[in-house]
Design a protein around this nucleic acid. Structure first.
Lengths: 242, 242
DNA sequence: CGTGGCCTTGAATAACCTCAATTAAGGTGG
DNA sequence: CCACCTTAATTGAGGTTATTCAAGGCCACG
């Protein structure tokens, strides 16, 4: 269950990156694939708890996560934090910075992480050259918009049990795509961060986990979760099926 | 307060569109500006209550709103609707469709509307040719991501009075950008749609409006709103100032 | 072995929702 | 033009959900 399987020794090159199919387009011609390596300037390590970027930082680059786990969040003037997402290997952060040429959210590593730094100027110039890359960039941004639409549904329409169920299913599904278990996961974030993301207080998060545990739907011990009855979780998300 | 001032007789051409500075990049060279007109294939009228596109429709185009007012929404399997945004002249809808080549939300006209149909293939090919247009497309998508981050803050962290206050300020600010009043507006959406967007029930929306009215912050008669004390609304959004 | 951070649990409270009744507005047909 | 009908919005009373406040437990770490 560690990410050690993903973290391997690789030079800074997309062409032989094991995450390429997650963060870059498929169908690149063999002749052009070397050009793709220009997109990444360098790698950057971020220690657990450190920021990749902060609200207000000038925007220069997008970041592709190689290893580790991030949260992004926005903050109000009066200090309230809203976690806007959790990102794992193969996902892209930093898109918020494009519009005003400065970031409007924070990105913090929830475990030691490594990212590929992609200067946005490189992304744009290569995109003009390679339509398949251009399309990929557009898809990544569109995917983020669609994801946020789903979160709005979660926050606006669902009750706390539905939110937690949807959250767990989403996490485990994404981990499964990356070769991890379909039924077991380790939460990289605190209850507080889960609550912030899902619009609930830490106590409500805890109570909901306990309830699912009592019902035999999950086993939970600290940050380790075993999903014993995924169908039950799905039913909680889609109550009309009952 | 009608949109008649905005709706004028114009041929299908961005180069002389009075909304150009809202939806297209500035700084286009005079030589190239005619090429820009290629981006719009045609115009399309959408009657009040009709869909511009539906969840599941194949994605072909982005739409720039010329006149009228739209809502976008997503729906769960069990029929719950979450309004994800309200869009007015100069704003772009359809970005959700890029990632899966089909739309994942509905766009419905809340009043008779006209949109410029921009086939996405045109957008992409012209973007490769004109970096300033490419940058503009990226900014539009990034802006939408940032906007949704703000909505997540609204839904996840704010109480109902704050949501309504933020909603009114946001609407009137956008209308003001378009030459309308800073203090008066007509709500194009029902209480139900406001509630769906803000994650509250219709009764709570209504009560909150009534409360603001009783406090002398706004005057409200059906869908007409007069903001009498914008500072009070701002204070409600940012309680730390008190 | 003690300390601090994170998590859990309980009881009381507040916010919002549900249900129900009433009022207001807009549209239709006589 | 008015009466009627339908839909939208408001208001009240009571219930539910989630929050707040408070106490205690569990680990990890020095």
């Amino acid at each position: 269950m560690t990410d050690a399987t993903v973290a391997q020794n690789l030079k800074v090159a997309c062409s032989n990156c094991n995450l390429r199919e997650l963060c870059l387009p498929v169908g690149f011609s063999p002749d052009d694939i070397d050009r793709l390596d220009e997109i990444v300037k360098n790698r950057r390590r971020v220690k657990q708890g450190d920021s990749l970027f902060n609200d207000g930082d000038p925007f220069t680059s997008l970041y592709a996560i190689r290893t580790g786990f991030f949260k992004t969040s926005v903050t109000t003037d009066d200090g309230r934090e809203q976690v806007t997402g959790f990102q794992m290997a193969g996902e892209i952060v930093g898109l918020d910075g494009i519009v005003n040429e400065q970031h409007s959210c924070h990105a913090v590593a929830l475990e030691d992480a490594e990212v590929c730094v992609m200067p946005f100027a490189n992304v744009e110039s290569l995109s003009r050259e390679f339509p398949v890359l251009q399309r990929n960039v557009h898809k990544i941004m569109s995917r983020e918009i669609v994801r946020e639409n789903e979160v709005m549904m979660l926050l606006g329409n669902m009750r706390s049990e539905e939110r937690i169920a949807a959250f767990l299913l989403n996490l485990v599904q994404r981990l499964h795509t990356r070769g991890f278990s379909k039924t077991e996961l380790v939460l990289r974030m605190s209850r507080e961060e889960i609550g912030s993301y899902l619009g609930m207080k830490i106590e409500t998060v805890s109570r909901t986990f306990s309830k699912f545990s009592d019902l035999g739907i999950i086993e939970i011990k600290q940050r380790f979760v075993h999903i014993k009855d995924a169908d039950a979780l799905k039913k909680i998300c889609n109550p009309q099926v009952c």
